[in-house]
């Protein structure tokens, strides 16, 4: 018995899987066409305060006059919606979902908007072999949060990533070009080592690292991870943020991030700092 090859059969491929995937990517690109900058907030380490930094920087930038959105890509530990005060059902309109508005008008979509309070992220599907498809479903959720949300015209879209690099790599696969990366660490050597790996992966993937924020500085966590990473990657150390920062630190940070993208659409007034 001999078989012909796929290409020998000249009739149409009814499924057109490749074309469907291409259409998915195009949908994301079209939806983000009005977004000036996409900045991924990442860290190789959990518990360093990425979400708090994301929310506060977003609020400060919006307060200074920028149009800002936040996509909470931490599907298993979503906190951005609460931090921004963005609550309520999501409005479906046409071919998209309208993001909710939080502090200072920041547009926000989070898995927290979809889940029952106190419930983990769970999927319908076969009881067994979840490890085979769960990751694919989370990647699909990221794609739909990018492509099915009417983000509109934004100066800045911050994407709050979970710890590690896997969600960042998925993001790179979905976006037309790698996002800018803002890195958050705490001062300790352990954090430095974990963040270094993630930042290296991001840079090698073609992302532009715009700076590092050292969070939770003080005697509780000795170290100089922020400075070390700044020197190693030749990026600015935007701030060393103590446990109880002065309110102005977020405005200053937003201005620094705005300045770091001086060739792009976002303009955070210097007076805000």
């Amino acid at each position: 018995m001999s078989f012909r090859t796929y290409r020998d059969l000249t009739g149409p491929d009814a499924s057109g899987i490749v074309a469907q995937v291409v259409a998915q990517r195009a949908r994301v690109a079209e939806r983000l066409a009005g977004v000036g900058r996409v900045v991924a907030v990442m860290s190789g380490k959990g518990g360093v305060g990425k979400s708090l930094v994301t929310a506060r920087v977003a609020g400060a930038a919006a307060e200074a006059g920028a149009a800002v959105g936040v996509l909470d890509a931490d599907f298993n530990g979503p906190t951005i919606a609460r931090l921004l005060g963005a609550t309520g059902p999501l409005q479906v309109s046409g071919d998209a979902v309208t993001p909710l508005r939080g502090d200072h008008g920041v547009r926000c979509v989070s898995m927290a908007h979809l889940l029952e309070d106190g419930r983990p992220l769970e999927f319908h599907g076969p009881e067994s072999d979840g490890h085979l498809w769960r990751g694919a479903l989370e990647a699909a959720a990221l794609r739909e949060f990018l492509g099915d949300v009417a983000w509109g015209r934004l100066d800045l879209l911050l994407i709050d990533l979970p710890p590690g690099v896997s969600r960042f790599l998925e993001l790179c696969d979905l976006l037309p070009s790698p996002p800018e990366v803002l890195t958050v660490t705490i001062p300790t050597p352990e954090s430095r080592d974990a963040v270094r790996r993630a930042l290296r992966a991001a840079v090698e993937r073609g992302a532009r690292a715009i700076g590092v924020i050292e969070n939770m500085t003080g005697p509780q966590y000795p170290g100089d991870a922020g400075l070390s990473l700044s020197q190693e990657f030749s990026i600015p150390l935007f701030a060393r943020v103590p446990f109880h920062p002065e309110p102005g630190v977020w405005q200053s940070l937003a201005a620094s991030i705005g300045a770091a993208g001086a060739d792009s659409a976002i303009r955070i007034p210097r007076s805000a700092s």
Binding site: R27, D95, L114, L121, E144, D148
Partner: peptide
């Protein structure tokens, strides 16, 4: 494609 089609079909949501 419907908005958030895969998410709404797969996630156990509110």
């Amino acid at each position: 494609p419907q908005p958030l089609e895969t998410v709404r079909s797969a996630v156990k949501g509110r």
